[in-house]
């Protein structure tokens, strides 16, 4: 009993600072979003507002064009997700089922691409987008977000598809399905958790994306949430209560989605290794 108690204490001592560090900004965000402007600047600051108010949450819709930002973000995130699914499903299937020359290299290539920071190529990317006269266009964001999310999605789906025994598909083919039919009626439904994980992950990626949105979108009515918050709510003077209230709304979407997906996400990453 003594040792387990000590161990427990040790774990707390190690983990507590990390928990505090990662939760602190979130707590500040929630706390500030519930304060009146006067209380925001009060010194010393308090964590729990003395007169909590939801006023900020109703004001933000008029202070900035938040509804439009939400709409644009949703459009980009859903579009990117759809595009990722459309491309990653066949790619992941091919990598899981077929052995072809360069397969190993391609898998490695995907992994390396995944690590590339967007900022390194933003200049070159801008010239390409400009050449296609696609600046200030939300479709550009869909394409770029999909492109950057694709490698991870393919990698994850390859693992999921590999975990479905090939014999199940072969049995379906002998029973009368074509290969495509067997894929769509066996492997894809059996990988449903993986598809959901990839979908939500792509969505979150596009939803949180800032750099491309900042670089390629100029018109105010086409701004997405990340840039909109940064540009308008925090432009002349930072109105912390509004900023934090909007940030909270944006974050809630991500947190809820991540909670839905986290179990499937780790399962997908392991699935490929198990075989």
């Amino acid at each position: 009993m003594r040792t387990s108690w000590l161990k427990y204490l040790g774990i707390i001592v190690v983990l507590l600072p990390m928990v505090v560090m990662s939760l602190f900004p979130l707590i500040v965000m929630i706390s500030t979003s519930l304060k009146s402007p006067a209380e925001v600047y009060q010194w010393p600051p308090v964590f729990i507002p003395r007169e909590p108010t939801l006023q900020n949450y109703s004001d933000i819709w008029t202070v900035a064009n938040l509804a439009a930002y939400f709409r644009n973000s949703l459009f980009v995130a859903l579009g990117a997700t759809a595009l990722v699914m459309l491309l990653a499903v066949p790619a992941g299937y091919a990598l899981a089922r077929f052995r072809f020359r360069g397969r190993g290299f391609y898998m490695l290539f995907l992994l390396v691409m995944q690590m590339f920071p967007g900022i390194v190529i933003i200049l070159a990317l801008y010239r390409v987008v400009a050449a296609f006269q696609m600046t200030d266009n939300l479709v550009t964001l869909i394409i770029l977000n999909a492109a950057f999310g694709l490698s991870f999605a393919v990698w994850l789906l390859t693992g999921y598809f590999s975990s479905v025994p090939a014999e199940v598909e072969e049995a379906a083919m002998v029973d009368g399905n074509s290969r495509l039919g067997a894929m769509l009626r066996m492997t894809v439904p059996l990988s449903a958790p993986g598809l959901v994980a990839v979908g939500i992950f792509s969505f979150i990626g596009a939803w949180n994306e800032f750099l491309f949105a900042l670089t390629f979108i100029r018109s105010q009515d086409k701004l997405v949430l990340t840039v909109g918050l940064w540009k308008y709510i925090a432009r002349f003077q930072v109105e912390w209560n509004y900023l934090e209230a909007s940030s909270f709304l944006v974050t809630v979407v991500v947190v809820v989605l991540f909670m839905l997906v986290q179990k499937n996400l780790t399962r997908g990453l392991i699935a490929g290794a198990e075989r």
Binding site: P165, E167, V168, E170, A171, A172, V174, D175, M186, P189, L190
Partner: peptide, 12 residues
């Protein structure tokens, strides 16, 4: 018709 070693039943 084919019978497979690991049966290959449709799990879903």
């Amino acid at each position: 018709a084919m019978v497979f070693q690991n049966y290959a039943l449709y799990p879903h």
